[in-house]
Structures are given as structure tokens and as C-alpha cells.
Amino acid sequence: MSTSTAYAAHTGVAAARATGLNKVYGEGETRVVALDDVSVAFGQGEFTAIMGPSGSGKSTLMHCMAGLDAVSSGSATIGDTELVGLKDKQLTRLRRDKIGFIFQAFNLLPTLTALENITLPMDIAGRKVDRAWLDRVVETVGLSGRLSHRPAQLSGGQQQRVACARALASKPEIIFADEPTGNLDSRSGAEILSFLRNSVRELGQTVVMVTHDPVAASYADRVVFLADGRIVDELHHPTADSVLDRMRRFDAKGRTS
């Protein structure tokens, strides 16, 4: 498997796609190229992990793909929608209707109950909640008894589960998760990860997850490796060991080159 295959790697339909994506921060002396001609597609119903050293541009890529940040050049699409050139209002709508988010921390509004947090995107959109789907999501994340609790009354793992349920409940085309298990112990992390994997397997959800943890990456169907703002490698059907192995390899490569 080589770098060039990253773009056309999967055979299914792409839920999100980046083509020749560039992201540059600052100017002159402080100029940082965070993304350097990145082309990548995230297949529908696929669980993709993005890995790479700190500062390699993982978060930047995710933010650009999710319409949270403007790209410097290139194209980013969600489904059939081109993000480049959309106005703030259209982007907001798009995020609301087609994208789910799970952040590393602080995903929930402290004033709302778990259930209210879960239905928040739909409430904002004024959309009706699909009861049956909601029940199924809630059951899958194992929150049934905790729906009326406020975030302060939930553990960190439970809070992340609420965040997952929120991302899933509105049936988005794609879920972006930035280090969702970064703040959790390994058991809670494992719960969240298997839950994400199940949502892909059983519910057909598309998930893109940024992580530093080879074990977390091993839950994914495919791992994309970033370094210095470029896609340098990818791995299908990863295991923790194979990911670790691959990481060591270009750590070494990075040192020798």
C-alpha cells in the first residue's frame, strides 16, 4: 500500500472528500502550512482514524472538512455539497443537518439534561425527533437510566457517551471526532470506541476520528497517517500492533530523512 492509493482506496461512495486541500496559517515569518495538498476520501459506512504526530495537521484537516475552518485552497465536500465558498449561515446549516461532532472535552451544555443535550441539534433545527431511533441510540450507548441527569452529575465517560449519542441521534452523513477518548481511562475509552465501531457496523454511520492512540485506531476500518500536513500512509483493517509498527517505521523514516 502506498501514499498514492489513499485517494482511491475504497470502492464505495465517499461521504466526505478533500481534494488538493491547503491550509496556511499566518504570513511571512509566522507562516505555517498546516495542510499541504491533501486529497482524501472518507467512504460511506466506514470508520476512519487519522493519526500522526502532534502538529501534523489532524485537527486542521478535520476542522476544514467539517466546515469549522476555511481552507486556503482546494476543495472539501460533504456528500454532494462543496464547502468552499459557502457562507457562514449555509455552513452552519450544513453542520447542523449533515455533521455530527464529538470533541475531546466540553461537548455538553451544563444547563441541559443528557437527553436535552442529545436532541439539541434537532431542537435547533426545529426538526422532529425520531423516537424509535433515539431510543435505539440511547440504548446502544447505555444511557437509559441517566437521561434526566445534568452533565455535572455524569462521569467523563458518560459525558462522552452523551456526546456520541448526540452526534448519532440526528443521523448525520458523517461524524467527526477529535480525540474523543483523550480524556478517558482505558475502559471508558474502550466503551466509546466499541460504541463508535458498532454504530458504523450496525447503523451504517460514517465516522472520522482523530487519535494518538494505536489501540483506539485499531477499532477503525482504516487508518490515515498525516505528517507535516501531508498524507504519508494508510492502513486497512488495522490492529494495535500493525499501527504501532507503522508509526515506528515513519518515526524512523522521519529521523533518517
Partner: peptide, 13 residues
């Protein structure tokens, strides 16, 4: 952070 999160999940300006 809350406001940022609300914006991210789709609350307009």
C-alpha cells in the same frame, strides 16, 4: 466554549 460548541453543532450567529 459552550458558545463555540453550539455554533459547531449548528446554531447560527
Amino acid at each position: 466554549r459552550e458558545i463555540g460548541m453550539l455554533r459547531a453543532i449548528g446554531l447560527e450567529r
